[in-house]
Nucleic acid binder design. Structure first.
Length: 585
RNA sequence: GGCCCCGUAGCUCAGCAGGAUAGAGCGGCCGCCUCCUAAGCGGCAGGUCACAGGUUCGAAUCCUGUCGGGGUCGCCA
């Protein structure tokens, strides 16, 4: 149920009737113009429950004045039972006040639909591939990855809720030089496991998370690799260590509540002919050539020298320069397998691709979009969401990470310290492209400026309320509450809360179209705020208390509203992957 | 220098598909617990939405330019 969509159809029908009666002269409104018609909550609640800009949008093509058109639309709208009052305001807004019963109906819808309230068919079953995390398999996930993991996972849930068929995917960078470095690093730990002194040379991974890998290598291979030249052991050790790192990463993700549908190996592309075939495809379109790039503008790198190389003509699709796909030594750049990988996603039939990257990869957005546009003949959109840095604090003090010493704050440490639910919610309290401050102390604080706690508190309060109601002899089952007579809910706080609940389905759709799960978190904060406010009105005015010993009917109505709030909080948290709590500790 | 992101209250940030008098939290000041969780609520103060143009009936929102902050810039991923 989406009340805004429902009322919008009323508006559109009224417009159609005017058109049929010839009241809309001039050119017939195009579908583009019609799409500009909105039905929204007005910014100022005193204007009414909903406002539509229909008259202002249609006035120009019709060649009439907005207010005149609004005056003609008004009586048609007022004729509908669901609309109690229509006023024309400002430059031509039509403000609608809905019949209270309509708001009351929201409560019924929430209680009937439960966790599915707000679920949308917007996506129409389109298939979406969301690739996220995709960290190099060379060590445990750290905080930066955590943000991407939470964002991608919540976005996936959001799109699923909005009616898309979603696949969560992780691209394993197991084909490049970094996994050879991993192998060499692990080999030193293998030597260490045999009682030898490891030589962690500059450029190797020093972290002691490789110590168990060394032990495991010893268990697997005994001492058979010890005196062998690198050629003999590199591949074995690399595959072994990569597999162990992926186990580690999978476990880290699981601790955060993230489960991937697909792990896609970069290495699997090598030797399969897929890279060559994809590049041949591009070549057939005239998009691959040998050429010499202009040096970058401005400050020239020290070792710059013009060099002919194999280039992809990404400028054909909006990039700034063409991009190399082979290194000087003839090996592929990382871009080449990435092209093949995205081609594979297109071939698997997805209608929409989403990549979630760290902001430091921003320079690669254009070339990736260019290649997907080229390979899909502009049919498959690719949206790339960049996640900004996470800055760590401990009670206001910046928390330094030293990557060189292999000391960095891992996903696991964050989750162990504050829990997966808190981690997830906090990671979504900023837009993805804004930097995020994460304070280990403040995220656990129990105060209003900690949104996680504040939202959870509302949920727990309602739980507590239901227990109280039960003790007072009131039935609190959903079916009982769903049949409550709601006409007594007329206080501003109550109507406001119902309006807020009615916004949820619409919010889900906007958040989904923008690929912005943080909007759900902000909505929940607002909803919680309105609930706390309502609660406290009962503190000030006993007549507004939710449990009224003298009026079981009204109590039931208010409990139904409270329960509906709880259900929507729970549904919203569900999208974010956060478990609602029932009791504050 | 090129490209990308950002610039909204003292601070941290929202701003819904361009809509009416721009919002919240923190900090400051003033109130509310014999009462369902005061871990909360209400109120007051605080803004040239970086700046200048443009499109529009209407711009914090879209376009161009300037300034400021961050990221990134062939053979790392």
């Amino acid at each position: 149920m989406n009340l805004f969509a429902e009322i919008k159809t009323v508006v559109l029908e009224a417009v159609a009737r005017l058109a049929a009666e010839g009241v809309l002269p001039g050119e017939p409104a195009t579908s583009e113009i019609m799409a500009g018609i909105t039905v929204e909550p007005p910014r100022d609640a005193s204007h009414g429950d909903m406002a539509t800009n229909a008259a202002m949008v249609l006035a120009r093509p019709a060649g009439v004045r907005p207010r005149d058109l609004a005056e003609k639309l008004a009586p048609l709208l007022e004729a509908d039972d669901r609309i109690a009052e229509v006023t024309v305001a400002g430059p031509g807004f039509i403000n609608l006040r809905l019949a209270p019963a309509l708001w009351h109906g929201v409560i019924g819808a929430v209680l009937a639909e439960g966790a599915d309230f707000g679920r949308s068919k917007m996506g129409a079953g389109q298939r979406v591939n969301i690739e996220f995390v995709s960290a190099n398999p060379t060590g445990p996930l750290h905080v930066g990855h955590t943000r991407g993991a939470v964002f991608g996972d919540a976005l996936a849930s959001l799109l699923d809720f909005a009616g898309y068929r979603v696949s969560r995917e992780y691209y394993i960078n197991d084909g490049g030089a970094q996994v050879d470095v991993l192998a060499r690093s692990a080999f030193e730990r293998y030597r260490e496991a045999h009682g030898l002194n490891p030589e962690i040379a500059e450029g190797l991974y020093p972290g002691d998370y490789l110590v168990p890998v060394g032990e495991a290598l010893k268990a697997e291979f005994g001492d058979t690799l010890l005196d062998q030249p690198e050629d003999a052991w590199l591949e074995k050790v690399r595959d072994f260590a990569t597999a162990m790192m992926m186990d580690l990463i999978r476990a880290d993700l699981k601790a955060l509540g993230v489960v991937m549908d697909v792990f896609y190996s970069e290495k699997s592309l090598y030797g399969s002919g897929r890279i060559e075939a994809t590049l041949a495809d591009l070549e057939a379109r005239g998009l691959i050539y040998q050429g010499v790039l202009e040096p970058p503008k401005g400050r020239l790198p020290e070792d710059w020298e013009p060099r002919p190389q194999t280039l992809f003509k990404s400028t054909e699709y909006g990039d700034d320069v063409d991009r190399p796909i082979r290194k000087a030594d003839g090996a592929w750049t990382y871009f080449a397998p990435d092209i093949a990988y995205h081609k594979d996603k297109i071939d698997r039939g997805f209608d929409l691709l989403i990549d979630v990257w760290g902001a430091d990869h921003g320079g690669y957005v254009k070339r990736m979009k260019a290649v997907v546009a080229a390979l899909s003949d502009n049919r498959v959109p690719l949206d790339i969401k960049l996640c900004q840095l996470v800055k760590l604090y401990k009670d206001g003090e910046p928390f330094k990470m030293s990557k060189r010493a292999g000391v960095f704050v891992t996903l696991r440490e964050v989750v162990d310290e504050v829990g997966a639910d808190v981690t997830r919610f906090v990671m979504l309290t900023r837009k993805n492209d804004a930097p995020l401050d994460f304070d280990f102390v403040k995220v656990l604080e129990q105060s209003r400026d900690n949104p996680v706690w504040y939202v959870q508190y509302a949920h727990a309060r309602i739980r507590s309320l239901m227990l109280r109601a039960g003790e007072a002899g009131l039935e609190t089952g959903d079916s009982t509450l769903a049949s409550a007579a709601l006409a007594g809910l007329i206080d501003d706080a109550e109507l406001g809360l119902m309006r807020k609940l009615a916004e949820f389905p619409r919010l889900v759709e906007t958040a989904a179209t923008h690929h912005e799960p943080h909007r759900v978190a902000f909505y929940l904060y607002d909803l919680a705020s309105e609930f706390h406010s309502w609660w406290n009105r009962g503190q000030d005015q006993p007549a507004l208390r939710m449990i009224r010993d003298d009026d079981p009917g009204l109590s039931r109505a208010r409990l139904a509203l409270a329960r509906a709030v709880q259900v929507v909080i729970s549904a919203g948290l569900g999208i974010l992957g956060v478990t609602p709590i029932n009791e504050m500790k």
